[in-house]
Nucleic acid binder design. Structure first.
Lengths: 115, 115
DNA sequence: ACAAGTACTTACCCTAAAGTATGTATCATT
DNA sequence: AATGATACATACTTTAGGGTAAGTACTTGT
């Protein structure tokens, strides 16, 4: 987890933008270019960590778990770990995560119309 | 305009993500946290540069024109300059820019439901 | 002569996000 | 005893985005 300097101007601007702009709030949650991809793949249903890795070959492991953790703490995905060896961990969209799908879908339709 | 290193892995990953994921394509166009705000303010209609500046006090001039230029070259906004002094420049959403409004709206509704 | 207004432009710096590489724990299998 | 599989963790480096500050052009008003 990267440490953030809450005193920096960037963070201050983000704060005010967040307070005033709901769109920016959503961007905060899904605004990296890996997160929408992860969410998209989870829209098909629950997936193991290794399945996600296979489904998204370009992502590095660091990025993958980093974003999965963020999505989890943001309440968008649910992590389930079975206490077995080797580990068996699955990720699935939460309710608010699923409610993001219209957003994802709206973006996808716009993109396909304008690529 | 910041020079970008097209050889970097980041850019390579973006390319493959763009080719495969329409959502990422949309993110490329509106994925900074100023762009959605700018688009939102232009959704009310054509605005002068100085009006946008007043409407979004936190944005610096550099960021504002930088993103306006990008939005223009991406075909999302239309710039009109009247050849007068002092300059009179207006910005408005293009057709594809207006078609983004459902996306913005979807994000806003999700945000207000989950803040 | 000089300030003011408008729409930029440019040079420089700082930070957060992303990438690279390597390491860890646990048990089953060979 | 070594290897493989799984799901991470962590130290270090690079890069793109954003911020700061200052300057430009052109004309009108004082």
């Amino acid at each position: 987890m990267t440490a953030i300097k809450s005193s920096s101007t960037i963070q201050q601007n983000k704060k005010t933008a967040l307070a005033m702009c709901p769109v920016t709030f959503t961007m905060e949650k899904i605004g990296s270019y890996w997160k929408p991809i992860i969410i998209y793949h989870l829209s098909e249903g629950s997936k193991r960590y290794s399945e996600l890795k296979k489904a998204i070959p370009a992502v590095t492991e660091k990025m993958l778990i980093q974003h999965l953790k963020q999505l989890e703490t943001d309440g968008l995905v649910i992590r389930e770990a079975r206490p077995v060896v080797p580990p068996y961990v699955t990720y699935q969209l939460s309710e608010s995560g699923r409610q993001l799908l219209p957003v994802i879908h709206a973006m996808a339709t716009w993109a396909t119309a304008h690529m």
